Simulated scan of single mutants.
Amino acid sequence: MKRPLLLLLIAVAISGCTEKPVAKKSLSLIDRAAAQYDSLYTSIAPFKEDKKPIPRTTKDGKLVRVGAYDWTSGFYPGTLWNLYGLTKDNMWKTRAEEYTLKLDTIQYWEGNHDVGFIMECSYGNALKYMDSPTYDSVIVRTAKSLSARFHPKAGILQSWDWSKKWECPVIIDNMMNLELLFHATRISGDSTYYNIAVSHADTTIKNHYRKDFSSYHVVDYDTITGDILQKNTHQGLSDDSAWARGQAWGLYGYTMSYRETGHTRYLEQALKIADFIMYHPNLPEDKIPYWDYNAPAADSTPRDASAAAITASALYELSTFEGNKKAESHVKFADQIMQSLGSPAYFAKPGTNGDFLLMHSVGSKPHNVEVDVPLNYADYYFLEAMLRSNKQK
């Protein structure tokens, strides 16, 4: 009589110790991003003192690194700052400072408009998280270097020096460099930088934009008379097309310009550019544009995740402004972009994609350069969009 009871007690004990398998909790997108960038940081560690320490993209499956004077050099430290903002882990702050300081000499460089990209993404982001008179002085000194490219008669900052095709080319990308000038005036109190930025923004509205609020890529100026010599593309499908990343640069640039100045003309411009992007008939269902809005709508046409990430980040900020009656639709559209970019269709698996986050970006399709690859600036704006979205929740 005792044996069956003993067996019953053993059976109950065994069943009590046997648990159903618990599903492994999936990592958040932030955790996944941090893990991949931790792996990327480790993989480039041997090249820290190299002349090309900054990861930019991949080519034929291999990591491509660049030096401080590459226009994308600020995005990697900027991404590390974004990871610090998202995680509050001091490890990312330490790493971000390490790579920010590698760009120190850029503050004296007058040979390129992209110093705004480089230094605002690195030193500018650093100043969001720490007080540093040294970093303040770097921003102001860089703004002085950038201002050397201003042509008063034309009212613009010259973009490139290297082409024989144009006399004084100004690209829509240059709107992004104005943030550095606005920042320098806030630090120094010197309105020179602010006035240059406003002049450039106003002239760009006048000359870069078409009636449908799409933008030309390149406008060439006569620096003596200020006259327009020609309007072209360099990275778009054609002179009259709407290069996808260019439209995103414009949206972001005028959203930022309104934040810095309060001039309603910039808000109105940003709202109209947003409409062009959001309601374009050639926009794919997942909201990730083809590399040019006028490119064929086909499975074989490359998408540009970088343009989508820039757009999402800009729309999150645009939605915060008073007077924006379309704020709800802007947030919804940005959320749709981010949902797509965070999906397996665009967000890379660990150990792939050179440890970059996003797949399927395009650098310059006409030149067959960086087509359907990861790009460090796509990751930068993707994480910035996450930061901006999180602050609104």
Rank of each mutant, 00 (worst) to 15 (best):
I273S: 07
E317C: 07
W249M: 10
T57I: 07
D227G: 10
I106D: 03
Y221M: 12
D292L: 04
G323I: 01
A126N: 00
Y377T: 05
F333P: 01
K206V: 03
S343N: 06
W243R: 09
L318I: 11
K2V: 15
N112A: 15
E49P: 00
V331G: 00
D114E: 12
E97C: 05
K164W: 06
T320A: 08
A45I: 00
P55K: 11
V66Y: 07
H113M: 08
M256G: 02
M338I: 15
T203F: 01
Y279A: 12
W162M: 12
G354C: 05
N207L: 08
S389Y: 05
Y99F: 15
G351P: 07
T72W: 02
A327R: 02
D50Q: 05
V140Q: 03
M176C: 11
D240M: 10
V371K: 11
I172F: 04
A154L: 09
Y346Q: 09
A298W: 00
P302E: 13
F47S: 14
I228L: 07
I106Q: 11
S15M: 11
A274D: 10
K332Q: 12
T142R: 00
L318D: 08
L127K: 07
N282A: 14
M130N: 04
T203K: 15
A13R: 01
T57Y: 00
T94D: 15
K20W: 08
Q230N: 11
T79Y: 04
F382D: 05
D114S: 00
P350Q: 08
G323V: 00
F333Q: 00
L86A: 05
K102G: 01
H113C: 03
S39Y: 00
K165Q: 15
W291S: 03
N177H: 03
A34F: 02
S145C: 07
E120I: 10
L341W: 05
S241G: 14
F276N: 03
T320C: 03
L157F: 10
K211H: 13
V138L: 01
